[in-house]
Structure formats: C-alpha cells, structure tokens
Write a protein that binds this DNA or RNA. Structure first.
Lengths: 245, 245
DNA sequence: CCCTTCTATGAATCGTGCT
DNA sequence: CAGCACGATTCATAGAAGG
C-alpha cells in the first residue's frame, strides 16, 4: 500500500477495509457525483468532457469513478458509505457534497447504510457557473449530512450556519476540476469535535485535509488518481508556507 | 363551487378536475410539507403545535393536510401533481417549495407523475433561523422545479438566479404561518412566460397570486381553509393600495 | 414486574429587528 | 438602548403501553 503520512494512494474500497473500527471522529468528503447526464450514454463520457466547457484543451487530469451508470454508482456509494460507517466512532458526523441530481439517491443510501440523515446544507456559489435563459441557475451545491447514531448531547462545537457563500475558485487556485474553496471546507469541518480525527476517502487535491490541519484536526485521506495524489501530497508538505492555496 | 374572481375555495383535488386541459402556463406553489416529525404521531400534531415554539397563544389559523403520514402525503402529492400536469400546457414550468426531509420524495413523485425534473433552487432565509449547537442550521428551504416536457427553446424569460436570499418575515407582515416574502415569489414567477396564466393550488394567504399580478401575470388560486381564503381574497381586493403587504 | 418501545410535552440554541 | 419576541426545530425525558 502506498502512503505518505496520512495520505493513501489507492481505491477507497480497498484502503478503507484496512482501517480499524471506530477510529474516526468525522467523515467529510466530496465523492464523484457521476451526474453529468440523466442517460447512460451521457454518463459514460469522461468527466473532463462533461464538466468542462466546450472546445478547450484538457486542463484537469481525469478522475475515475465518474463513468458509472446510476446502478453502478448506487452500489459503489452504498459500499463506501457502509465502510465509512464502520470506521466512524459512534456519534461521528458525516458530511458529503452532492449535486441536485444525485441528492435523493444519496439521502436514501445514507439511510440504507445505517447513518442517520440530519439535514441538507447549501454551498451557494454566489454566481451561476453557466446561467441559462429561462431556467433557474445551478448555483448551489448540496451538502448532505448526518451522524452515526445520535450526535452526542454535549459537543464542543458551536452553532453552525446552513448556507455557505463562497465563490468558485479559478483554475490555478483550485487544483482539482471540482475543487472546493479552502474556507468552505474549514467552515464545514467545524462540525467535527476539536482535535478529532477526520477522514476524506476521496481527497482529490487535498483541500479537506489542508482545512482540517488548519483547524488543528488530524486528517486522513485517500486518493485514487496518481496525479491528484501527488498534488495533494505536495500541498500538505508545503502547508507551512504562508500562501493559502 | 365557491369562488371569487380567480380564487377558489375548496380542496385542490376536487377543484383541479373542473379545470380544462392545458390551460396554464406555469404552476407555482407551496404545498403543506407534512414534515414535522419522522414518526406518525409526531406528524399528527397540528402545524401550529409542531412549528411554533412553546408557550405562545395560537396566532395562525390551522391549515389542513399537515397531519398526514408519509404514505398519505405521497399518494396525495401524486394526485395533485398529476392533475396539475393535465391542466398545464406543454412546456409549462412547475415550481414547488419543499423542506429538506421531503425533498427526495417530491423529486421522485414529480418524475412519477410525468413531469421533467430540471433542478433544485434554494431559498436562503439568511441568519434568522433557530441555531442549534453542533449542527448545521436548517436555514434553507428548497424549491424543486421542472417542466411538462421540454421547456421551449425560445422563451421570453431572462436568466434567473439559483439561490434567493430573503429574510423570513415577521408575523403581521406575513399572514400565514409559513407565508413567503412577496419579493421571493416575484423572483420565482419570472420563470413564467410574460403575460401567462399561473396556477397556485395551495394559495394560503395569496402571496403567489399577488406577486403574479404585480408581474402582469394572470393568476388562479385554490385554498381549502376558509380563514386563509378570506385573507387571500381581501389581499387581492386591496391590491390597488400602495402598501405592499 | 422489568424491560423495551412508543408518544406527548416542553426546554433551548442566538442573531436580528421591533418596541 | 436595553429588553424581548421569534424562528415550516430538534432533542431529551417522563410517562404510558405492551410483552
């Protein structure tokens, strides 16, 4: 198994089973949505074609798991949610990014795997990525959250907002095609008990891990793509620099 | 059948069948969510008890259909969605408020009844919601939208945002326990073709109808509660006054 | 009679705006 | 300007019901 510090390179469904039971205080992740189309043929297009506007050269490395049909995505999501539940401590919160098309399926899967569904928070990107005439813009991304059993009555966590307003970052600042703003991830990670151990099984360019460390949390990540594994590793090593990417 | 102008008093499932096919350009509504609890007994409590904090006297007339269990709500929603589809013209948009708990069920029902699901917009109520320690606030309400078939390629509608930020109004300004800000409804109604005919089968205090008329749309509403029917009737009649309630 | 499950009731979170 | 009311909630807990 390849790893560097707390960052693992490999398939989440292969790495997760090597972790002991009840070893994480929170799961925070942004899995592949596989939502680029309602039809199988649209889904089968690679992510770089689905999510990048027409006719510009490839800017992002490909990421896997984006070419599943609805059924494959469902089985796959079921399995990693189940594994995450095993490695989470009782009462641990889980926070998952999802887009509107997959939201109903994800809330169902979350409950099927035994997690308790507690709400839907919103990432307001404040401007439409692609405004369209005559339709509401897809300006929000959704954040499904829940817990393994009940959230403990007394937690050392304050009150948290339910809508987070952050602009999408431009390529160069964001290092993954679907990379999230660092401030957004820091806000979300405040759901975790201070000093706790956080897992991101789909680490991408490592923003969750970086944000976690900024908050004084321990962070463990898994990333399947060799390119993003290298990018995340580099970011974590450079964390001491003052520039916050 | 009791009606006054374009406002009908009665059960939507009884009034809708009296409308002709393909007679509306848009459906915009805020149905009872029936979301107050995950158990049947919790749901069975009247809305004024479920949603209003303890120890204050009854401020709002009760509204019906808020005391259904999940199964009853599902069958009921299926039936009114189906009727709405019949009375909608081809290409007409539908816009429905819902809370996070019922969102997955509503998107399923929308598709089961033959509507095309096109997205989820967000009403961000901004800060004024009940904070909770250690959890994300339930600060947003969700707006499921779609169309009967495809939206026409050429519509006389501009680009619309996907997140709407409006504070919850105080009692006195809002006339229904769950009343929506007038500006919010006006924003949402911009999805309708200018001059079109809009239906709200759960009119409540009539904010949708008022907003529609402010935008120069024809508006038809149905309201089951005699109290809210009177309130909505009064507001529409007073519309000429400059004060916008 | 004890244990489990269900149900009914009310306390409490804090930023904001109104009095 | 201080105080108070308010929120399409959520949860804990006491009491009832059932096996």
């Amino acid at each position: 198994m390849v790893k560097e510090g707390d960052l693992y390179w490999g398939d989440a469904l292969e790495i997760l089973p090597t972790f002991p039971d009840a070893s994480f205080d929170a799961i925070v992740t942004d899995p592949p949505y596989c939502s680029g189309g309602m039809t199988m043929s649209e889904r089968a297009r690679p992510a770089s074609v689905k999510y990048v506007q027409s006719r510009q050269q490839l800017r992002w490395p490909e990421f896997e798991s984006e070419s599943m049909d609805q059924n494959a995505w469902m089985t796959w999501t079921y399995r990693w949610l189940k594994e995450c539940k095993r490695v989470a401590k009782d009462g641990a919160p889980i926070v998952i990014f999802i887009d509107w098309r997959q939201l109903p399926l994800l809330t169902t899967l979350l409950q099927w795997t035994g997690w308790r569904w507690l709400g839907v928070a919103v990432w307001d990107k404040t401007e439409a990525c692609r405004p369209q005439m005559g339709r509401f813009a897809a300006q929000a991304e959704f954040i499904v959250w829940g817990a393994k059993g009940k959230l403990p009555a007394k937690r050392h966590v304050g009150t948290l907002p339910g809508v987070f307003r952050y602009r999408v970052e431009v390529p160069g600042v964001k290092l993954h095609m679907t990379g999230k703003p660092l401030g957004l991830m820091e806000d979300l990670l405040r759901i975790a008990e201070p000093g706790g151990r956080v897992l991101d099984p789909f680490a991408g360019s490592g923003t969750t891990l970086l944000a976690a460390r900024n908050l004084g949390l321990q962070a463990v990540g898994i990333e399947a793509s060799p390119q993003y594994y290298q990018i995340a590793k580099g970011r974590l090593q450079r964390r001491e620099e003052t520039i916050r990417l």
